[in-house]
Amino acid sequence: MLVVGLLFSGLNGLQAQVADNLNAIDEYFQNFVDDDRFSVVYISGKLFQMLGSLDKETVRMENDKDAEALIEIAQDMQGLRILSTDEDVDELYESAKKKINTSIYEPLMTVRGKDGDNMELLVRENKGKISELLLLSGGDEFVLMSFVGNLDMEKISKMAKEIEN
């Protein structure tokens, strides 16, 4: 009976943990994903891997000198989810901000502008490594972006300095 008890408690704990990991992102997006106001885009890890094999010609045609750096970072990406809309921006920003689970996400950067161009950048860590970068942004457009993967913040911030808008 003790063994069965152990098994039960072990599995229940595990189940909760796995569910936690699986749903942390989904739970967040779920509130909005079926809402017609939003445009939703998802890039899977598999698609990210395919970017590596993109024809150099195509990349050059994009006229983007940072394309190579982008593709290098893409190799570490396991998923990108983007949710955006230009309706009810402030309201959505506030409600999304309230829903951030602070036991999972740690704030990296917060901007609060007078003109409403607010931004929150959060990270989720797993075993000392950054496993998710969550960007919540207001202003003209409400954007919620989740980058999942083995993220190297050094590479990303280096690119952030160099990339042209």
């Binding site: 885009v41 982008l70 960007l135 942004s137 990339i163």
Partner: peptide, 10 residues
């Protein structure tokens, strides 16, 4: 899409 997202992030 990815490039635009990274530009926004940057």
């Amino acid at each position: 899409v990815y490039r635009n997202a990274m530009q926004k992030l940057s």
